[in-house]
């Protein structure tokens, strides 16, 4: 299949060579097209950080009905390939856009911000003392000292509260960015996301100690 320039929205239909502008099907011959890789454009959405997830789900279902490989079983190999490609972009896009954190990271990346994993490992200065104490408690738990459990449970509640606060803060920043389109707001969002990721990692460590069995998914044989 011919890949087209992701930056451009206009390309030629592989089937009838008509001009296609950013749509999933050729306006001339109705043939399915190679997908646009930009998730917002794919879903026909404005690039906003705050999204109505109900509307997103509705669009996802509608596009699934049009693009899913089940619908192209009796069509040409070329159309089947387009359907497979388009469905994967649709599903990947839905997975990213429906989750506010992944959505924000996606927009940051597209706007040229570096959001490497490594940033989640630097301890935010205001948490230094807390992390130091937590690590001691975690060590005790790992050493089999059940007396550390209540402390760990407290820590879990505290981190969960923190994460909720962060999510509220993010909601605020999302609305701010959608109105202002200010890159400075994106920079702040990146900082908050890093802090959130750090706290998420702490929570994961705590939960792993509190319920070791439950954090393991099923056996894959």
């Amino acid at each position: 299949m011919r890949a087209h320039d992701p930056a451009s929205t206009t390309f030629t239909c592989w089937h009838c060579t008509a001009e296609v502008t950013g749509s999933l099907f050729c306006p001339g011959c109705k043939a399915i097209q190679a997908p646009v890789r930009d998730y917002y454009r794919f879903f026909g959405l404005e690039r906003k950080l705050s999204l109505d997830t109900g509307d997103l789900q509705h669009r996802f279902y509608e596009l699934s009905r049009q693009l899913h490989p089940d619908r192209f079983q009796r069509r040409s190999p070329q159309e089947q390939q387009c359907s497979l490609e388009a469905s994967s972009v649709l599903n990947d896009g839905y997975r990213v856009l429906r989750n506010p954190i992944e959505r924000a990271e996606y927009v940051l990346k597209q706007e040229g911000f570096d959001i490497g994993e490594q940033r989640g490992k630097d301890v935010p200065p205001e948490l230094l003392e807390e992390v130091f104490e937590l690590n001691m408690v975690l060590e005790e738990m790992r050493g089999g000292e059940e007396s550390a459990r209540p402390q760990l449970e407290q820590a879990r509640t505290r981190f969960q509260d923190m994460r909720r606060e962060i999510d509220d803060q993010l909601g605020e920043l999302f609305r701010n960015y959608d109105e202002s389109r200010d890159r400075a707001v994106l920079a702040r969002i990146r900082g908050v996301l890093n802090r959130r990721r750090y706290i998420g990692n702490l929570l994961r460590d705590v939960e792993k100690e509190l319920e070791p069995a439950a954090s393991l998914p099923g056996r894959d044989g």
């Binding site: 490989p69 497979l84 469905s87 994967s88 972009v89 599903n91 990947d92 839905y94 997975r95 998914p217």
Partner: peptide
Amino acid sequence: IPRNSTIPASA
């Protein structure tokens, strides 16, 4: 590609 991703899925 994380588990429970709707298929077709890609990376």
